[in-house]
């Protein structure tokens, strides 16, 4: 049952990303291009997502346990540390260069374009290296 939820949540997430145009790298780059021809799409997507989760998380995190698992597995760190800061900066730079963050890049594998495949391969390599040295 948990596996069924996982695949369903993935489906809904993928439909959300592609319907909102987030698998289109030019739209994401357009959002970051504040000083060029700005594209507000990503702001609306983030607004729609946050508008939902800011409300739903209030209620469901009051529960002692999730419906199908024993515990909520939430991140334990609370301090803003050096890896968080450096990681976010490096991510921001890479994000602007092509217009892919991890979700849309993986979702766009559906289009079978070599550019996306190459991006995802080097992305996984980058994560692997970070895990080794950080």
């Amino acid at each position: 049952m948990k596996n069924l939820i996982a695949i369903f949540a993935g489906l809904v997430f993928g439909i959300g990303l592609s319907a909102s145009g987030m698998t289109d790298t030019s739209k994401v780059q357009g959002f970051l291009d504040v000083f060029g021809s700005w594209d507000a799409s990503l702001l609306l997507v983030l607004g729609g997502a946050l508008g939902t989760t800011l409300i739903t998380f209030r209620f469901l995190l009051k529960r002692k346990t999730p419906l199908l698992a024993e515990v909520f597995l939430l991140p334990l760190k609370t301090k803003i540390d050096r890896p968080l800061v450096i990681g976010a900066i490096i991510f921001g730079v890479g994000w602007a260069l092509v217009g892919y963050c991890p979700g849309p890049a993986l979702a766009a594998l559906a289009y079978l374009q070599w550019q996306t495949v190459l991006f995802v391969v080097t992305m996984l390599l980058g994560a692997f290296v970070a895990k080794r040295i950080a």
Partner: peptide
């Protein structure tokens, strides 16, 4: 959507930075 028209070196560097940065920084946009 049309594939990214960035050059090969940019695609490689950007992918690496996104993977490295999100792993190091414990998360991404989602």
């Amino acid at each position: 959507p049309k594939a990214s028209n960035e050059s090969l070196p940019i695609l490689i560097v950007a992918g690496f930075l996104v993977g490295f940065g999100t792993q190091m920084g414990s998360g991404c946009t989602s």
